[in-house]
């Protein structure tokens, strides 16, 4: 079963003379439980594609079904609710709320779902344990290293057990050791809970644990491969 079904996605910016055609007709299907890496040179349109698939942006043209829901033409508040209940995000630069402790950051989407304070707090702690931040519940983001902050962001993304997790170059701002830990963490999560993960990266090294690698160039998908096939 496909959890993401996108057909003929176009995304243009601007108008008239200044129009930029960034996505030029993309078809993509992602199966439930798949771990997909999107790769390609800088400027290829990877992030733009991810924003379309994750309901943060609307394509100029095309169709997107996520978990059998048509997300095109949704109202702003419907999108927000949809993102809350179905999707999890890991951004390149952690994107934590600086006024909230690690635990409170993780709790935010849970509370918004209507989960009680106590329950959300418990789930947040478990989630932080999962990413290896057992004694950092009360730390503010400013008191955590980049790698730790990214792990809080992952904890926040997974705490609500969303159907799909989107990660846009989650390791870009990290040194290679922390980057490796983050990738291992995502791989483990995928193995343990069978969550669908869509990750943008330009490190081939980090993509090798994925089920599938999608290569983009200049707004189009140029090839797809299974990293396991050419391993030996």
């Amino acid at each position: 079963m496909n959890i993401i079904e996108a057909k003929n996605i176009h995304r243009k910016f601007g108008s008239g003379e200044l129009i930029t055609h960034v996505l030029k007709g993309i078809d993509i299907q992602i199966k439930d439980g798949e771990f997909v890496a999107i790769m390609g040179k800088s400027g290829a349109g990877k992030s733009t594609l991810m924003y379309q698939l994750s309901a943060l942006d609307e394509p100029t043209d095309g169709e997107i079904l996520i978990d059998e829901t048509d997300i095109i033409g949704m109202k702003e508040n419907e999108r927000t609710a949809f993102r809350l209940n179905t999707l999890g995000y890991v951004f390149q630069d952690y994107a934590l709320v600086p006024d909230l402790s690690a635990r409170e950051n993780v709790m935010m989407p849970l509370l918004m779902r209507g989960i009680t304070w106590a329950e959300a707090s418990k789930t947040a702690d478990e989630s932080l344990d999962n990413v290896g931040l057992k004694d950092k519940y009360l730390n503010l983001p400013g008191m955590l290293s980049g790698g730790e902050q990214q792990r809080v962001a992952i904890a926040r993304a997974i705490a609500g057990k969303p159907k799909i997790i989107f990660a846009d170059e989650p390791t870009a701002n990290l040194d290679s050791i922390s980057g490796k830990q983050i990738i291992d963490l995502l791989t483990c999560l995928h193995k343990d809970s069978g969550q669908t993960i869509v990750m943008v990266t330009h490190e081939p090294e980090y993509a090798k644990n994925c089920d599938r690698i999608i290569n983009m160039e200049d707004g189009l998908i140029v090839d797809e491969k299974n990293p396991w096939i050419n391993r030996y």
Partner: peptide
């Protein structure tokens, strides 16, 4: 503004 965007991104309602 960025944090506001992120909060909305992860599904926090505008009114909140």
């Amino acid at each position: 503004r960025r944090h506001i965007g992120i909060l909305k991104g992860i599904g926090i309602k505008r009114s909140a």
